[in-house]
């Protein structure tokens, strides 16, 4: 399946990527090539084949329920791009 430039723009937006028109131009044929290559999987009969999401499924991996301290606030804020000393600051989420 060919991936059109519109699809590239749409999917990029879903992934919260702003791509330049120049990038859209080069990405559309490249992604088409990759997806067309992947289409060979359609040729194989997969009836009744379970999907593998993990090589060795470990089920119900639990840890003991003991409270533990997380990282201190100042340590976390040290990596934050913007903060007010207590919390991470971001642009307004709600309008009005």
């Amino acid at each position: 399946m060919k991936i059109s430039e519109d699809v590239v723009r749409h999917v990029a937006h879903l992934a919260r990527l702003a791509v330049s028109e120049e990038d859209v131009h080069s990405l559309a044929p490249q992604l088409s090539n990759i997806i067309e290559y992947a289409e060979q999987l359609q040729r194989v009969d997969m009836t009744g084949v379970d999907p593998t999401s993990h090589p060795f499924p470990l089920e119900n991996v639990l840890r003991s329920d003991e409270p533990k301290l997380g990282l201190p606030r100042e340590v976390i804020l040290a990596n934050a791009p913007d903060d007010d000393g207590e919390q991470i600051r971001v642009p307004a989420v709600l309008e009005g």
């Binding site: 194989v44 084949v49 379970d50 999907p51 593998t52």
Partner: peptide
């Protein structure tokens, strides 16, 4: 069409 088939192929490869 894509992701699930790719995972099924993983099973066959295994």
């Amino acid at each position: 069409a894509y992701y699930k088939r790719a995972q099924q192929m993983r099973t066959l490869i295994r």
